[in-house]
Computed example of a mutant assay.
Amino acid sequence: MPERFRVVQSTPDMAHRLAEIQRACFPDLAEGELMRAEHYLSHQKVFPEGQHAVLDEETGQVAASSSDLRMNVDFEHFEHRYMDAVDNNYLTNHNPAGEWLYGADIAVHPEYRGHGLSTLLYNARHDLIRRLGLKGHVAGAMPKGYHLHPDLSIEEYVQKVVAGELRDPVLSVQLKRGYQVHGIIPDYLEDPSCGHYGVFIVWHNPEVSQ
Rank of each mutant, 00 (worst) to 15 (best):
Y146E: 02
Y146W: 15
Y146Q: 07
Y146I: 10
Y146S: 08
H147W: 13
H147C: 13
L148R: 11
L148I: 01
H149Q: 12
H149E: 06
P150D: 06
P150Y: 14
P150G: 14
P150K: 15
D151A: 12
D151Y: 12
D151K: 14
D151R: 12
D151V: 00
D151L: 12
L152N: 06
L152D: 10
L152Q: 10
L152M: 15
S153Y: 04
S153Q: 04
I154H: 00
I154W: 01
I154P: 07
I154A: 00
I154V: 15
E155F: 03
E156K: 03
E156H: 07
E156G: 05
E156T: 00
Y157L: 03
Y157R: 05
Y157G: 06
Y157M: 06
Q159H: 09
Q159K: 08
K160Y: 06
K160C: 06
K160R: 13
V161C: 12
V161G: 04
V162K: 09
V162S: 02
V162I: 09
V162G: 00
V162R: 13
A163W: 08
A163G: 10
G164E: 01
G164C: 09
G164Y: 00
E165I: 03
E165N: 08
L166V: 09
L166S: 07
R167I: 14
D168C: 11
D168W: 10
P169A: 07
P169H: 04
P169L: 05
P169C: 06
P169Q: 07
P169R: 07
V170W: 13
V170E: 00
V170R: 13
V170N: 09
L171N: 02
L171W: 00
L171V: 10
L171F: 01
L171G: 02
L171M: 05
S172Q: 08
S172T: 15
S172W: 06
S172P: 04
S172F: 07
V173R: 12
V173Y: 12
Q174L: 15
Q174P: 03
Q174S: 09
Q174T: 00
L175V: 08
L175K: 15
L175R: 15
K176S: 13
K176W: 06
K176N: 08
R177W: 08
R177F: 10
R177A: 10
R177P: 04
R177C: 02
G178K: 14
G178A: 11
Y179F: 15
Y179V: 05
Q180E: 15
V181R: 12
V181M: 06
V181T: 01
V181A: 01
H182N: 12
H182K: 06
H182R: 04
G183A: 13
G183F: 11
G183L: 13
G183C: 15
I184D: 02
I184S: 02
I184Q: 08
I184F: 04
I184W: 02
I185N: 03
I185W: 03
P186Y: 08
D187Y: 01
D187L: 13
D187F: 05
